[in-house]
Design a binder for these strands. Sequence first.
DNA 1: TCGAAGTGCGAAATCGATTACACAATTTTG
DNA 2: CAAAATTGTGTAATCGATTTCGCACTTCGA
Lengths: 341, 341
Amino acid sequence: METLPQAIKLHDVAEAAGVSIATASRALGGKKRVSRETAKIVLEAAERLGYRVDPIARALREGSTRTVGMVVPIIGNPHFAELIAAIEDELQAFGLELIISDSHAEVQQQAKRLRTLVDRRVDGILLVSHDAKKSVPAIRESMRAAPVVQIDRKVNGVKCDFVGIDDDPAMRLILDHLVEQGVHRVVLTSADDLNSVGRARREAFERHVSELGLTSDPHIIDNFSVEAGRDAADELLRRGDLPDAIVAGSDMNAVGVIARLRERGVDVPDQVLVTGFDGTQLSEIYNPPITTVRQPVGSLARNAVAFLLSRIADPTEPARDSRIATELVVRASTDGRALKS
Amino acid sequence: METLPQAIKLHDVAEAAGVSIATASRALGGKKRVSRETAKIVLEAAERLGYRVDPIARALREGSTRTVGMVVPIIGNPHFAELIAAIEDELQAFGLELIISDSHAEVQQQAKRLRTLVDRRVDGILLVSHDAKKSVPAIRESMRAAPVVQIDRKVNGVKCDFVGIDDDPAMRLILDHLVEQGVHRVVLTSADDLNSVGRARREAFERHVSELGLTSDPHIIDNFSVEAGRDAADELLRRGDLPDAIVAGSDMNAVGVIARLRERGVDVPDQVLVTGFDGTQLSEIYNPPITTVRQPVGSLARNAVAFLLSRIADPTEPARDSRIATELVVRASTDGRALKS
DNA sequence: TCGAAGTGCGAAATCGATTACACAATTTTG
DNA sequence: CAAAATTGTGTAATCGATTTCGCACTTCGA
């Protein structure tokens, strides 16, 4: 394979400026030990020739790539897509590139992606894991090679920074709102405990249901997908007697529930209220628009990047945990007029 | 920054196998000029030590990274997210990695992303451009450094492979279906001509409307987003007299239209039919589920990767154009019983 | 049997940057 | 004013792999 037609190398810049490549490198890197005038000449030459450092050569020598890797379970999930966009914006401010990887919500794939990122010498890794247990070995392995910050889903058993929302008060916001709407009997449909978030939301649900004196039907536990929501709706219809409200563990889930209920002729919110979780765009545009708790994606991204940078600077810091508050967004899916009257 | 604790290098493998690094490299690369036995010893040593080549060192020497870059306008758009997933699967079969970049639908950002990918020495680039004109210089620049295949959106004026759907017959499927449903008067809401797809769909719409003897209200042209769909609905309501059917240029668009119409008390499909375009998951889960034409994402991915690989192998081949047929998916949003009866 | 062709292997060049070190010129210090 | 410290610059080592080339040894054909 022929090389690029006009790849300007440091050598060319040095030659054009009439200095050695060592001096040229120092000048471009803004290092000391270069006179003002020489630096200026080099910078101009580089500018004129359109020089851009070869990131690969630099990475080989420096061991750093000025790049951050991010692994998510499913890029197609709007919640993660929004998170990715926010992270990318945030990294840009620090001159860092982002490599995005999709683990397809499989432990094997996740391990492989992480290994690839490590091999590529990313300076840090942002991980949205999907399995709170089986992920541990892969994360441990990665952590030996690069700083890792977990986002959204937390894997226990690893000493690792984490940024996420505060699920317990978020669930409380949902349930308080439902109580206001006149709800007495609720049911939870969410993801299993393999996922830290699934577990946290279930536990929060149980605690607040009890505190608020609500009645709860048996949970329907699977995962956060639309399909799981559909299946949950089927199960509820099979049970026959619908509760006043269905609390879904994610917006996707809520969408699945509503879609199936309406297919079967059950109206939301007239016959049953439904809530989501996450505050994705989907919850806003769905029909009916879905009541949910919004994750402050920008804040999550900011904190995650801050954690990562400080850990890159000093890998010995103790692991930190950041929990950000969510905001209740009330929409038509919980318009409980029917119940109250 | 300290180096990794246990980074096994080729040197270590060679030593363990009792050969030179040259021989070790040849053995691992499956090259000739290595005896069967020696190769076996080296492979075993590598396996035992858990050796993984340093992709950076290899890239520096070979000029190739076994990586493909992909730039999309918005990762969050479900249509692109689905495409990314399909491409990734396809590339895996060839042992290629994928780096995903989001251009935020801005020409500047797109140019920057492309340059970064080129600098990183990706072996090829898959581009979903959003602007058919202003993108030209950046694409030209990239093409000088790496093979480029365009997907979905086509930029004219560059001699570049392209893979997309056949918009004209796709639009015909939609309109034929609407005619069957008893529709006489239609309106198009879609993206402007900056986008090749916007233009193709508009032209197809006009042609087929005329051929089928339908009546068309003035188009409402903006972009493919949900917001544009909402605005389009507002415009239609302002005009007062609704047509029989609204043909949207994308599923997102259709969702926006339906959401707003229902907000304003206009029912879909009872009062007006609405169609989407692309066949994303959104069209399936929306309420009502939306009639659309499904893009065969798997086929698009397969062709795009095939084009890219053959161009990597032989950069001199003439540019090719692949147009894949779509499939009509009929759903509740065009249940025209009201019209027919 | 003898040159030609082929095989197996290692030393060293190479990719393009950064940087340790050496050296000379200059400035500071006691 | 001599010694020490500082500054500007270039030479060469380095990062970790791949590959060219040369050498020694086989195998083959005439």
